[in-house]
Simulated assay, not measured.
Amino acid sequence: MDLEIYDKTTDKVSEEDIKLIRDVLNFAGSYIHLKDNAEMSVTLVNNDEIQRINREYRNVDRPTDVISFAIEDDSDDDFPIVLDEDMADEIPENIGDIFVSVDKVTEQADYLEHSFQRELGFLVVHGFLHLNGYDHMKKEDADVMFPLQKEILNAYGLKR
């Protein structure tokens, strides 16, 4: 997976935590059989920036922990591009962008009494699953997403 990670935080995240993000997302991609040439980004921000994003895109004026922006490729183009299977497999698929509040990672890790790394991994996997079509707004969707999320984190080694 082609993964870009941007650290826009004031105190900067450690290289070990950047590596954790990269490793856990690559693991999650393999776990759900994501195409190798998928592309996505993770941007680490502070509460003020994620609150601005939350207000602008969701009309919720408070900080949140993670926001995912999935890129939908289903369009009603008048002129669709038709490629043979080999060519289609070579074109990278951008699945979207995740924004994570590092302030919320710290707050929630303290509140839940587990490590910063566990919470960071949890939030990026949560956002990653949203980018891949999983949701939890309806009970039947949550019954699929939450066990998968836990399964990925446990298999990776980020248990509670």
Rank of each mutant, 00 (worst) to 15 (best):
S75N: 15
D84V: 03
H33L: 12
D65R: 04
S14T: 14
E15N: 13
F69H: 04
I18M: 00
E93L: 05
D86I: 14
V45T: 14
S75V: 15
D89K: 15
V60Q: 15
V45N: 08
D78K: 06
D89L: 09
L83D: 07
I50G: 06
K35G: 04
V24S: 15
N59R: 12
E56K: 12
L83N: 11
I81R: 13
N54W: 05
T64M: 15
N94S: 02
G29K: 03
V42H: 03
D84C: 02
S75K: 13
I18Q: 05
P80H: 04
E49I: 07
Q51Y: 08
I71Q: 02
K19L: 11
S41I: 03
I67P: 02
D78Q: 07
V60A: 12
D73Q: 11
V66C: 08
N94G: 00
D77P: 09
A70F: 14
I95L: 02
E85T: 09
I50F: 00
V60L: 11
I95T: 09
S41M: 03
D78C: 08
D97T: 14
E49G: 01
E39A: 08
S68E: 04
D17A: 12
E56C: 04
F27G: 14
N37L: 00
N47Y: 06
D77T: 10
I18N: 01
I18A: 01
N46I: 02
E72A: 13
F79I: 11
L25D: 04
D23K: 04
P80R: 03
P92Q: 08
V24A: 10
N94C: 06
E85K: 14
Q51H: 09
Y57T: 10
P92M: 01
R22G: 13
M87P: 05
L25W: 01
N26D: 08
T43V: 12
V42N: 01
N47S: 07
D74R: 04
A88K: 13
P63K: 15
D48C: 09
S30E: 13
E72N: 15
D84H: 15
E49P: 10
V13K: 04
E56S: 06
L20Q: 10
S14Q: 07
Y31M: 02
D48F: 12
D36S: 11
L25Y: 02
D23M: 01
D89T: 07
D89V: 05
T64S: 11
S68V: 06
I95K: 05
E93G: 07
S41F: 06
V82C: 10
I98V: 14
T64V: 14
T64Y: 11
D73F: 06
A70E: 09
E49A: 02
N46S: 07
P80F: 07
L44I: 15
K19W: 04
V45M: 08
E90F: 11
